[in-house]
Each structure stands twice: as structure tokens, then as C-alpha cells.
Design a protein around this nucleic acid. Structure first.
Lengths: 115, 115
DNA sequence: ATTCTCGTACGATCCTTGTCAAACAATTTC
DNA sequence: GAAATTGTTTGACAAGGATCGTACGAGAAT
């Protein structure tokens, strides 16, 4: 039947929100979970230079379905960006935008504070 | 009878934690609630010069018992400091210490970001 | 084509926690 | 001393959300 849509990702990938549209509370809530904090840390301190880390390469103490949930939460909060490549997915920190919108936040989370 | 203790606050006031002992996660969790965020904002943008705001003067959309719970949470996370005066209690932001331990955090929460 | 890998979707469960109401305790005020 | 003020404590409750297992779907590898 009529395929009106042109090329939507088969899996429900919602449009990445503008960072300006995101309030602090949402970001804080997203970061207030140990697993998600761990994700952000791995994303921040890695050779993400290219296009982020593959989800499967991020080691987490939870199952895959739970990890999916957390990835979704992070992206909905505007913290991460996702890129699909075949059956694999790459997640990356929206570092520049975060640093501009919320100066110091990423450094804080990553643990760049203290001497 | 023997009053061994010298002057313990009748209400269970736990010792204020050292800021260095507090991890980011705890702080983020404490700040990831709309009511507590509102508290911090009122504390940050007020004539708190003296000794903080009286709990009763902080207007919140919750009952007193709920407010007590939030105040406790904030202090346990090292974000606030409390001072008792008679039957009244004054709450204040540990701004200097926070700024040193978590640079930019308070400004972020208060909304000093964006141009 | 069959199988394997990677991630999603759904449903169920369980734990955390934000919330209130009511009873209580301490201090101030009359 | 009695009443009013201020905040705490406790118990109960509901909503949120973190978690898992299973089933599913889409590419990749054989």
C-alpha cells in the first residue's frame, strides 16, 4: 500500500530535540541515575572522535533492554546523539552543544572537578 | 538529672557532611526534583546575606511535611546548611563550597546560562 | 536460505520516592 | 498557663521508573 513516508528509521527514533528547548530539570533528571551517568562518562572519556561508541561496546551492569531504555532517556534529554549504521547503533555525547548551553555540566559529571 | 550532652538540637539534625565527601550523583539526584530546584533557586536569588531564609518564608506547592522532607534531602546532599533559632529554622545555600567543589553547578541550576 | 548478531518493543514486577494527613514537640506570645 | 506558631515524625498511599525476560525485527555473515 501507499508508503507515504519516505525513509523513517524502522525503529521509533524520535527527532533529536534542540538543546535550547531543553530545561535544566530534564537534564538533571536524566543524569541522576548511576547507569546513565556511567554511560555519559564512557562517552566522554573515549575515542568517540569518529561517530560515538557502539551501544554494544559500552559495558553496563544491566540487560540490553534496560540499556535501550537509558539510551532513549539520554537522547530525549538532549544529552546524546544517535546514529544508525546497519543493525548497529552509535551513541555520542553532544558535547559542544552541552558545553554551550550548560557550561561546566559535562566536566562536572565526568569528574573534572577537584584537584 | 545528668545532662551528658551539651546542647544537641532536639530535632534530629544530622551532622552537615563535608562537601568533599559528596559525590556528584548524590547532588544530581537531590537537584532532580522540581520542588527542590525551586528551593535552591529561591535560596540563590534572595537576601540570604544574613543567615539564609526561614523555611516558612519559602513558598512551595507542597505541605509542610513534604517540605521538611525536601529540606532534609538537600542538606544530606550537602547543598544547604541549616541553622535553628528557637522554633524557627533558616536554610541557606552552601554557595561558596558548592562553587568550589562543583564549579558552575549553582549558576546552572539558577538559570544563569543562556545569553 | 539459514543462522547469528544487535537492538527494540512489550508486559510484568518491584523498589524508590514524592505526597499528604494527623499527631506530636518545642518555642514564642498573649 | 493557654494558645498560637513552627517544624518534625510517622504511617499510608500512589506514581514513577528501573529492571528483567521474552518475543520480535532488521541487517550481516556463513
Amino acid at each position: 500500500m501507499g508508503r507515504a513516508e519516505k525513509d523513517p528509521p524502522r525503529h521509533g527514533a524520535e527527532p533529536p530535540p534542540e538543546l535550547a528547548d531543553i530545561d535544566v530539570l530534564t537534564v538533571l533528571q536524566a543524569l541522576s541515575d548511576p547507569v546513565r551517568l556511567e554511560i555519559v562518562r564512557q562517552l566522554a572519556g573515549c575515542p568517540d572522535s569518529a561517530g560515538g561508541l557502539a551501544c554494544g561496546h559500552i559495558e553496563l551492569p544491566v540487560t540490553k533492554s534496560t540499556a535501550t531504555h537509558h539510551f532513549k532517556t539520554l537522547m530525549a534529554a538532549g544529552i546524546t546523539h544517535e546514529r544508525e549504521e546497519g543493525t548497529r547503533k552509535f551513541v555520542s555525547l553532544r558535547r559542544c552543544e552541552l558545553d554551550e548551553r550548560f557550561p561546566g555540566l559535562v566536566d562536572l559529571v565526568v569528574g573534572k572537578s577537584r584537584s
